[in-house]
């Protein structure tokens, strides 16, 4: 039962992170007239946070399927000689 629980916890954490990262105060902070690599900071910030959330969702969704027992863990039964 570890898998589903971790998915739930991870999902909620990611969601809350998104809520905070896209909240007006943070947007105001990153709305400064600053350019990074020639890109506006706000533009960069929004897409970076968004991309991070997508990566997190992908990773969390994968937890469910990755929690299956590893095939390599089977004990070796063959004789060595």
């Amino acid at each position: 039962m570890r898998g589903p629980k971790r998915i739930a916890e991870g999902s909620v954490a990611t969601f809350l992170f998104g809520c905070v990262a896209f909240s007006p105060p943070f947007l105001a902070i990153f709305g400064a007239e600053v350019f990074v690599f020639g890109l506006p900071l706000l533009y960069l910030y929004l897409f970076a946070v968004w991309g991070l959330i997508i990566v997190l969702v992908a990773w969390i969704a994968d937890l469910g399927s990755a929690s299956r027992p590893d095939q390599n863990d089977k004990p070796l039964t063959g004789r060595t000689r």
Binding site: L42, Y43, I53, L56
Partner: peptide, 20 residues
């Protein structure tokens, strides 16, 4: 400006909670 964006961030956040 960036006001077009929240309309796409919302669905992303909903999908974060897909399990629920």
């Amino acid at each position: 400006g960036m006001d077009f964006l929240p309309i796409y961030i919302g669905p992303t956040l909903t999908f974060v909670l897909w399990g629920f």
